[in-house]
Design a protein around this nucleic acid. Structure first.
Length: 462
RNA sequence: GGCGCGGUAGCCAAGUGGUAAGGCCGGGGACUGCAAAUCCUCUAUUCGCCGGUUCGAUUCCGGCCCGCGCCUCCA
């Protein structure tokens, strides 16, 4: 069964398949590294990760590229205000981003190119655009893409016939760059005093690349002039992806990306995330509030990627419970998580879960089926059947990117607490209930709680 | 104004032209010295409002109300 995925360009759900019949090549617009990424950003990256996982658990090979945007107005301004060189600044936030990705169990892309590391490639692309008559240098030294030169401009966003509103005109007049038409966008930005040391030499003088050109240059370098799929948040449809198509196809004359995959935004408590509302959560913030990255991942997968998803603390708590339910199931079937070096492809009894994922990455439907199946499969005792359940559960966890293990790493309690807990257990074995209860209170005073099992106790933070 | 999306139980959220998945919360039960965990079970005569098409619509069409996104560098 193939993976069917909605395509923004055609507005149809189409089969996503590798054009070379072998490896699925796709590009994801990565973060601008000027601060910590928030969970809205990660909704996009988590969905892209699941997309890759669904391909790989279906037996496809992938070639996954995700860039780092490390030069733009924000990175420059922010690094300057901190008095740090741009590279040092962006390296720091790139590392921070990578750490968050690891915490969320995102598979590492096969290539993670950065804009600053690909200045020559971008310059080369711009040169070709000028030669082909699709770009021009304005009086201020900047180079712009001539939107009128690309007939298909606006096809992706369907904004081709949009009117120039007063809003746009006022922005244009306050723009510090000169261009022929308000729709034209910068490929190369001439050096300005406020850019400081952050400029590079080019055939058009000192300056820096515009935003859109980096993704064209890097995607084509690593994936070829024509590749299988391009992805990002919905906000990138216009102008970013529209501009990438114009630049790339003007140069190559070939279809840039065959499939466009866009992820809807995350809302927080029914509202758009914004700094002013104070609802821009990061993994670090949520961790301080006691929530684990995997729980965040679960919430991000609990809604359809094509619809805005409402993030609430209630849903985060629901995710905790739901995951512990999977944990219980894993313990019941004595599941041991395998290595993630290669993903399991045999879903077996969990086939219907994979089917839901293959149906336009319907993660909520897939989760629904997973929980229904768990109820049915938990009482299987035949060892052969049980093994098939374990394998299928592995494939399921691999597809969602969940790490479930039947042996949870218990937080090690202070020695004092462990001694008390052992004493309590001994008292309990001696049926000395009053001593046992008293010790439970003492343990609680240390912030720990005891859970009894058949053969012993487990300590957990209260 | 232009383009686009959505309104499903207390919350999150799927889905279908044929009579509403799943998770959380809540109720009941089993188990349990206590506690927790775990398991079983129950909970929308109804899918924003009003019309239309149809044997039948939450699902298709039209109108209305409400919310949201994008409209030049925000995932």
């Amino acid at each position: 069964m193939p993976l069917n995925l909605h395509d923004t360009l055609t507005r149809e759900t189409r089969e996503a398949f590798p054009m070379d019949g072998h490896s699925f090549r796709f590009y994801c617009c990565g973060p601008t590294v000027y601060g910590p990424a928030h969970i809205g950003n990660f909704r996009t990256f988590v969905m892209q990760d699941v997309f890759r996982r669904v391909l790989e658990t279906s037996g496809h090979e992938t070639l996954h590229v995700r860039n780092i945007t490390d030069v733009d107005d924000k990175t420059i301004k922010q690094s300057q205000s901190e008095g740090v060189p741009l590279k040092e600044f962006t390296d720091r936030w790139s590392a921070f981003f990578n750490r968050d990705c690891e915490l969320l169990n995102l598979m590492t892309p096969h290539a993670v190119p950065s804009a600053v590391d690909h200045i020559p490639e971008q310059i080369s692309l711009i040169s070709r655009l000028i030669e082909a008559g699709n770009a021009y240098q304005a009086d201020d030294g900047s180079v712009y893409f001539k939107v009128d030169s690309f007939a298909k401009y606006g096809r992706l966003s369907r904004l081709a016939d949009r009117e120039i509103t007063t809003d746009v005109i006022s922005r244009e007049s306050s723009d510090e760059y000169d261009r022929d038409s308000a729709a034209d966008f910068a490929l190369w930005k001439a050096r300005r005093p406020e850019d400081g040391d952050n400029f590079w030499n080019s055939p058009w003088g000192e300056g820096r690349p515009g935003w859109h050109i980096e993704c064209s240059a890097m995607s084509m370098k690593y994936l070829g002039e024509s590749f299988d799929l391009h992805s990002g948040g919905v906000d990138l449809i216009f102008p970013h992806h529209e501009n990438e198509i114009a630049q790339s196809e003007s140069v190559t004359g070939k279809t840039f990306a065959r499939h466009w995959f866009h992820i809807a935004h995350l809302m927080v408590e029914g509202k758009k995330m914004s700094k002013s509302l104070g609802n821009l959560h990061t993994l670090e913030d949520l961790s301080k509030r006691g929530f684990k990255p995997q729980e965040v991942r679960y919430v991000l997968l609990s809604g359809s990627y094509r619809q805005p998803l409402n993030f609430t603390f209630d849903s985060l708590k629901a995710a905790q419970k739901a995951l512990s339910k999977l944990q219980s199931f894993a313990e019941k079937i004595q599941f041991q998580a395998g290595s993630e070096d290669s993903l399991e492809t045999n879903f077996g009894p969990f086939q219907s879960v994979q089917d839901a994922l293959l149906s336009d990455l319907n993660t909520p439907e897939a989760l629904g089926r997973l929980f229904s199946l768990i109820r049915e499969l938990r009482d299987i005792s035949d060892e052969e059947e049980l093994e098939a359940v374990r394998v299928g559960f592995q494939a399921t966890c691999d597809a969602f990117g969940f790490i479930i293990d039947s042996k949870p790493q218990a937080e090690s309690a202070p020695e004092q607490v462990q001694i008390l807990a052992q004493q309590r257990w001994d008292a309990k074995q001696a049926k000395d209930w009053s001593t046992a209860d008293q010790l439970r209170q003492e343990i609680l005073a240390f912030g720990w709680t005891v859970k009894d099992g058949k053969d012993g106790f487990v300590l957990a933070k209260a």
